[in-house]
Nucleic acid binder design. Structure first.
Lengths: 345, 345
DNA sequence: ATGAAAGCGCTAACAC
DNA sequence: GTGTTAGCGCTTTCAT
């Protein structure tokens, strides 16, 4: 590591070795700093000769613009904050990936904040994240504490809430109705003749919404008892295994189990097999998410398909429109969902 | 959205509504801005009464520090950049997650850059990322273009290269030897009696290292032909299926296949089953990564376990030590690996 | 097409 | 323990 403290000519201790700045590039190119700034941000406004001289200077010095300074001066950080429950969950990672790719085309960088599925973490995270002065913010979910909403609104930047919809978004919402998912899955299973039901779920607010609707739909169809297992907010195969064990301790087979994710569903399937139970005969299973392994479990997983890439893209487009002061035609985008009937239910 | 342009009292058009600044908090608390800054960064150096007055002022104004300004003034952004091939790959996501958690304890925020497995993307990404003036940088892999190395070194910040090791790191390396993995897997399979081999691999430099060593070890054991299929840099189940199809077009069963990831391995397994081939009898399979589903495929996947969380933690610790000017005892950390023998090989 | 001046919001050195 | 002064490196009027 190069040493970072040097003595300046004036004898004062500086923090960093004097690095290449806009000014040093300007001196080298024989122009004013302003002109270099223009060459970088509005090259069309600089004479071709000047431009190439500046570009040479940049290349020969290895100048890297300081976006902390640029952002401070212009009040535009070219940063977009994204708050997600977990980056180690493919479902969110794929949305973030498509979102990131799309906004990068317009020169924005995305930085992530992870709540770790802790609802209280969001409040603190929002402050941390706003302190970087993002130009826009991407949130997961539509439930935020009052303080949170207030801070978010006070920031005065475009906001997109994702993975859920609401008639009253903070600004823009891109997602689907979890309640409709719950109703649809209940109807699907009931229509296929299932009469005993269970829910194997991660303890996450959106999963709860689906489960509540699932139970409500079944109640309407005369089924008043739905065993539900909530073990942890983090989806895992292990959680699915334990959930099925829980359900079977309370209810008999055959049972139809609605899971909060495909990973949990895979765990349910594994546990069923370990107990010598067949799917769908003894344990019917519906997953959620349609991750890429869902089609390849044995038997193949019936699940609810969510278009994660579209959520990312539509969110990006909506935010970019706001940032460009373009009209946003619809501020609530429902990307829908689809039940993919495979073998487990 | 609140409007962003307002007319100031002096009649000049400002970019943002005058927001709450350190200065306004200071005025409210009846102290100098410096004191507020101190209250925030070195609260122990401020009198208790003053401190609480300042905290009240902060609370009542909803002040959120501007870290662009703070970073510019102090030359410490409290930002760490992490460059990864893909965020939608659990293997990297889990490392980043543990890394992020660890450095956050020391007040750093991590922002990600994604190369999309494109080796040329790194060069451009490094510049983009350095323009945010991170205090340290986390890289995936040890292979970087000359320009890249130079820019990285010129930044004068701590660097950790991960997922591989080298005797000559840019600064610090935390990973394991891919070549040793290749040799070990070859030995493992050969020792168990396999004599026909194939490689189903994503086209990624670290996978290539493993494959080369795998082939070399087998050559030493008298096996001079190892069919290898490279189809895409992105691991997917589909890629595994196509890879096995490729291999079987060139070689007969029984075959032992070394895969570049568990996902690819699962694809190989699925394809084998689709063709009515049994594992390990007809197609022996070794995966890579030991992801959580590996123990639950049928038959369960034999694979190479990598401790992704440890890579993240050790990287974080090394970087934090550098940032605190503490001595880093070892600048090359080998976290090792382990072959997990299950059923497919 | 280019430059001079002012300032973004904060921290750091130094004095008191 | 607190305040004063001087920037950090850039962008933005406004003038030429």
């Amino acid at each position: 590591m190069p040493t970072k403290k040097i003595e300046n000519s004036d004898g004062r201790l500086r923090h960093t070795a004097r690095s290449v700045t806009l000014e040093s590039v300007a001196r080298l190119a024989g122009v004013a700093p302003t002109t270099v700034s223009r060459a970088l941000n509005h090259p069309e406004k600089v004479a071709a000769k000047t431009l190439s001289r500046i570009q040479d200077a940049i290349a020969s010095t290895g100048y890297v613009p300081n976006l902390l300074a640029g952002g401070l001066a212009s009040s535009r950080s070219r940063l977009i904050a994204a708050i997600v429950p977990s980056i180690a969950n493919l479902v969110y990672a794929e949305t973030i990936q498509s979102f990131t790719r799309r906004v990068r085309e317009s020169g924005y960088q995305v930085f992530l904040g992870e709540t770790g599925y802790d609802p209280d973490a969001e409040e603190e995270l929002v402050v941390t994240v706003l302190s970087r002065r993002p130009d826009a913010i991407f949130l997961t979910g539509i439930h935020h504490s009052a303080t949170c909403r207030q801070r978010l609104l006070a920031a005065g930047i475009p906001i997109v809430e994702t993975w859920d919809i609401t008639p009253t978004p903070l600004d823009i919402a891109v997602g689907f109705s979890h309640s409709r998912v719950g109703h649809s899955v209940a109807a699907y299973l009931h229509d296929r003749g299932h009469r005993t039901f269970g829910v194997a779920s991660a303890d996450d607010p959106r999963a709860r919404l689906r489960n509540r609707a699932f139970t409500a739909e079944l109640a309407e169809r005369g089924i008043d008892k739905v065993e539900t297992s909530y073990l942890s907010p983090v989806s895992s195969l292990e959680l699915g295994r334990r959930a099925l064990a829980d359900l079977l301790a309370a209810t008999l087979t055959p049972i139809a189990v609605f899971c909060s994710s495909d990973t949990v569903a895979q765990g349910v399937l594994v546990e069923a097999q370990a107990r010598g139970l067949a799917s769908p005969e003894d344990v019917a299973i519906v997953g959620f998410g349609d991750q890429n392994f869902a089609a390849f479990t044995y038997p193949a997983l019936t699940t609810v398909k969510i278009d994660r890439v579209t959520i990312g893209e539509r969110s990006a487009e909506a935010l970019l429109a706001r940032l460009d002061d373009e009209p946003v035609e619809e501020n609530v985008v429902d990307v829908g969902f689809e039940i993919i009937a495979r073998q487990t239910a």
